[in-house]
Amino acid sequence: MRTVTLVEQSDAELVRHTLCGDKSAYNTLVLRYQRQVYNLAYRMLGNAEDSGDLVQDTFIRAYGALASFRQDASFLTWLYKIASNLCIDQLRSRKTRSALSLDSEREEGREPANENRCNAPEDMAVRGAVQEVVHHAIQNLPERYRQVVVMRHLQDMSVEEIATALDLPTGTVKTHLFRAREMLRGRLRPALEMEADGK
């Protein structure tokens, strides 16, 4: 007798089984994608605790809306859409709580006055923590630019997938991506130069 494992099944099949009442199928989907969702949240929110909560909320919200999921679409892209909306909600609530709205300064293209509240990029580069420097540089991007950079480069999504996930035209996604890279270029130049010196 042949044993059938759920791991071999496609996302669409697992979604169908879930809709038929099989919760273990949904558990398989959670196991399959929780890391990707966590990473999106971590790069967007910047801390592990909030990211863990967001992973839970994303999958619970997805379960509630599973009947509306189009099964010819990508389940992961759909998850990213839910997760990125939740991230934006959370970032906005943080903004509301913050007395000094640093993010709004960044939205307007101005550098926050206390940009050095994290470790200086140069110091981190000297310690060889280029990834940490990049992580902080991403954190300091405006949220709409941060989203596309994280999805494009860290989640390895295509521009079209990002456009689907964020409900934006592909042209807008590209514009956000290019502006984000331009900002990063300015902020990471010292770190990259130090890294080049170290080689």
Binding site: V30, Q34, R35, Y38, N39, V55, Q56, F59, I60
Partner: peptide, 16 residues
């Protein structure tokens, strides 16, 4: 990709 600090699946299924 950052490593997952915990396996959230049990908690998620419990909440569901």
């Amino acid at each position: 990709l950052s490593p997952l600090p915990h396996d959230y699946s049990g908690l998620i299924m419990l909440r569901i």
